[in-house]
Amino acid sequence: MNITIIAGARPNFMKIAPIIHAIQQKRSLKFDIDFRLIHTGQHYDKKMSGDFFEQLEIPDPHSNLEAGGGSQAEQTAAIMVRFEKELIENPTDLVLVVGDVTSTMACAIVAQKLHVKVAHVEAGIRSGDWSMPEEINRLVTDSITNYFFTTSDVANINLLNSGVESERIFFVGNTMIDTLLKNRPKFNKPEIWDELNLMEKNYIIMTLHRPANVDEEYKLKNLIEEIIKNTHGLPLVFPVHPRTAKILEGLGIAFDNMHLIEPLGYLEFNYLVERAKAVVTDSGGITEETTVMAVPCMTLRDNTERPETITIGTNELLGTDPNAIAPAMEKLFAGDWKKGAIPELWDGKTAERIVDELVKLYRINKK
């Protein structure tokens, strides 16, 4: 069985790493299974060096399509054109896509048009917000997927409600958590820890990247000012994209306890998250990691595609109104934040379950 695995952005590699390990494990047991890893190049990340792949213990991609840049449409077209050529030159039994980036959707379309089956890992999650490009990617990908691997019962219900047959849905858990649990013992203290004299549970981490938060300048200013006002003077560590840093500089936002730093590596960033008093974010993936590490999390969005991090985990959806920040911070500093629990099957064994199911499906289809 040959599987072509697609990754288009840095978080995708966290999701596919344990799947690659599970395939390698099957091969060591003499199973007839192999993979080809394709990086579409959708996002260029200078931190995705050899060290990055070494940390995740995965090989360099077999091919990089270098399809980054341009508008949504230009990027989608570039990925499709280049992946079609790749797939024709390197036939496969299955294309496996993860998450909800443009590459996920584009490669699923190409595969189906070439009559290759598609498996979608992290299928069925929905925010209900069609203004998010990721939501369109999810909807399109799931409308043409053959096998759906899900992270939660909510995702299962979303798929069933959209007409997907139950026998094509496999509730397996969360591969991001596989990666987190495997690497947790290896979290690495970044230099910033000593430079800022950080102390455990005595600082807050913030990440903001969604255009709705960072591109509207005065909205960003109001959010940050309100957060700073309610941090009780604790250090606010903000790994920030250079573009966002320029916006902040232009707005004249600077506070003694706000520390803008460059984006960190996976092991370094999660070292800080694990020891933080809380995380303020607009990311989806981070809410999953904070849930497993039992770190209070405040999400500055009006919706989320990961509701289990709220109903079960340590996350709270604050929305984008700055007035919601003070009550949340008050609850945090009063020690009243919910303890949370870990969602079902977020146990570090998701990738094994995925590969087991793929092997079964392959054998059934070969009969």
Rank of each mutant, 00 (worst) to 15 (best):
N2L: 12
N2F: 10
I5D: 02
A7Y: 04
P18H: 05
I20F: 00
I33D: 00
D34F: 07
R36P: 00
R36L: 11
H39C: 10
G50F: 06
G50E: 13
G50Q: 11
Q55K: 14
Q55S: 14
E57I: 00
P61Y: 01
L65E: 05
G69R: 07
T76E: 04
F83W: 04
E86Y: 05
I88Y: 08
N90M: 02
T92M: 08
D93W: 06
V101D: 07
S103C: 05
M105G: 08
I109A: 13
K113N: 14
S127M: 06
W130C: 09
P133F: 00
E134D: 10
N137V: 03
S143Q: 07
V154N: 13
V154H: 12
N158F: 03
S162H: 13
S162P: 01
S166K: 15
E167Y: 12
V172H: 06
K189N: 00
K189T: 01
E191K: 15
D194R: 10
L196D: 03
L198H: 05
Y203R: 09
R210I: 03
R210Q: 09
D215R: 13
E216R: 13
E217H: 12
E217I: 03
I224H: 03
E225T: 03
P235E: 00
L236F: 02
V237G: 07
V240P: 06
I247M: 11
L251I: 00
I253L: 15
F255E: 09
D256Q: 13
N257P: 08
M258S: 11
N270K: 10
R275F: 01
V279Y: 09
G284T: 01
V292K: 10
T304Y: 02
T304F: 02
I310W: 07
E316P: 00
A334P: 07
E344K: 14
D347C: 02
K349A: 12
T350V: 10
E352Y: 08
R353H: 01
L361N: 10
I364D: 12
